[in-house]
Design a protein around this nucleic acid. Structure first.
Length: 418
RNA sequence: GCGGGAGUAGCUCAGUCGGUUAGAGCGCUAGAUUGUGGUUCUAGAUGUCGGGGGUUCGAAUCCCCUCUCUCGCCCCA
């Protein structure tokens, strides 16, 4: 291993990257709050069974991507690869069935041992929401509306498309799976190697194979829609109908399948073609059986998760950092300058000191690097009158302001955007 | 996990018949200039040439291994 470097697939966030990251996170939560969501924070690691049991034995996440380790007590623990399992576990652990319905927002790091690519890291970050205890498709519609509003608030709604499908209820899914396997088995020899494997483990996944040959075979395969029970069909119709009422654009993609076992009924993905191979930016679906499967009371659930890094790469809107006041002491009065800066900070203003170079250079730095709106010049002349010279770096005008009222003066003139 | 491409200063890169002390631009630091703006000028600092091994009198340059990034597959946010 060369010198000092971060672990493969992990990255430091610096300056702009941090700001973009937080912007995505805060924007998502701000919008979620408008929909009545509260925040939940769960540990970033759990007992391995929490993930193994909920995600399904056949999923790639469980079979080859988990960061698992044995701790000093001999327990097998795993860094969370996704958020829903932990939230579901917390729901059961804390007896939250008493508090239904619940609308929960979460954010934080996730870990998957995958080969890194652009938009794919081993430690990445998600924001996500879960709605628990609402069986009605209204919850699906609201969750999708929230997703749409978040993407819109981030300024990425126009480069993203919503694809949606139904996986049906348990009966629908079992019937469809049988029909699909029966059909595909006839073409077994012509399927790609990957898909022959999928035929055993997860036949639905063959539907969205990228292999040309597979696609030709799949084109004539039986369709999920034909296997849906009337109830499942009605459910999906209500979801799509709701999206139309709310004016949220979408396309039905009958081949859309979700990777994790716990999904049923509604499945959806917001994708973009601006990110290379990792086009999915936000995805989720309904998981009515999950909590019961974990040993809790039968509880409906729907949720989604979005990749913060992927969204951060898409969003052009990064808010500028707050513009500070630049305090520039002259005549060697550095400590006096520090005192003035300290008073401004105590009054709630952002203040930075400009120490080095002559006045000309200090002003240039204040305007350029610090992006300050005002420079407070502490000169000897003004100092003798108990005042400072405040220069507006945007307009070039300056006023002499008594030190006693400096903070109040500045507060009346909040720094505008860059 | 599989297959392709790439790694030289903080950033973008030049450096290929193997040949002294490895370069440029930008950025950084300081000065010109302790009292008025992003320009300019001058000076300066910084590299285990991703890491390890090998070939050679001599390796940033050729060979092997490895690490990381990147593109695609698998899969996913």
């Amino acid at each position: 291993m060369a010198a000092l470097q971060s672990v493969r697939g992990t990255h430091d966030l610096l300056d702009d990257a941090v700001r973009r990251h937080r912007f995505v996170e805060e924007t998502a939560f701000a919008v979620a709050r408008r929909y009545g969501f509260g925040e939940i924070v769960t540990p970033i690691f759990e007992f391995t069974e929490v993930f193994a049991r909920t995600l399904g034995d056949t999923s790639d996440v469980v079979t080859k991507e988990m960061y698992s380790f044995t701790d000093r007590s001999g327990d097998s623990l795993t860094l969370r690869p996704e958020g829903t399992a932990g939230v579901a576990r917390a729901f059961v652990s804390n007896g939250l069935a008493q508090s239904l319905p619940l609308k929960l927002f979460y954010r934080g790091p996730m870990f998957r041992h995958e080969r890194p690519q652009k938009g794919r890291q081993r430690q990445f970050h998600q924001v996500g929401v879960e709605v628990l205890g609402v069986e009605s498709p209204l919850a699906d519609i609201e969750a999708l509306a929230l997703a749409w509003r978040v993407l819109d608030a981030l300024g990425v709604a126009d480069v993203v498309t919503l694809e949606i499908n139904t996986l049906g209820d348990g009966d629908s899914r079992a019937a469809y799976r049988d029909a699909l396997v029966a059909y595909l088995s006839d073409f077994r020899d012509r399927l790609s190697e990957d898909s022959r494997d999928r035929l055993e483990r997860n036949p639905l996944r063959i539907l969205d194979s990228k292999d040309e040959g597979d696609r030709a075979i799949v084109a004539d395969a039986p369709r999920m829609a034909d296997s849906l029970t009337p109830a499942a069909r009605d459910f999906f119709a209500e979801v799509t109908g709701g999206l139309e009422v709310l004016g949220i654009p979408f396309t039905v993609n009958p081949r859309l399948v979700r990777g994790l076992d716990y999904y049923c009924h509604t499945a959806f993905e917001f994708t973009t073609d601006a990110l290379g191979a990792q086009g999915t930016v936000l995805a989720g679906g309904r998981y009515d059986g999950l909590i019961a499967q974990m040993g809790g009371p039968k509880t409906a659930g729907i949720g989604w998760a979005a990749g913060i890094e992927r969204l951060a790469m898409l969003t052009a809107r990064t808010p500028d950092p707050a513009r500070p006041v630049a305090v520039i002491p002259m005549g060697g009065g550095d400590l006096a300058g520090l005192k003035v800066a300290e008073d401004l900070r105590a009054a709630g203003l952002a203040a930075e000191m400009g120490f080095s170079g002559n006045l000309k250079k200090r002003l240039a730095r204040a305007a350029d690097r610090m992006n300050a709106r005002f420079a407070v010049i502490l000169g000897e002349d003004e100092g003798s009158r108990g005042a400072a010279l405040v220069r507006d770096l945007d307009t070039g005008t300056q006023d002499e302001v008594p030190l006693a009222s400096l903070a109040a003066w500045l507060r009346e003139r909040p720094p505008s955007g860059r």
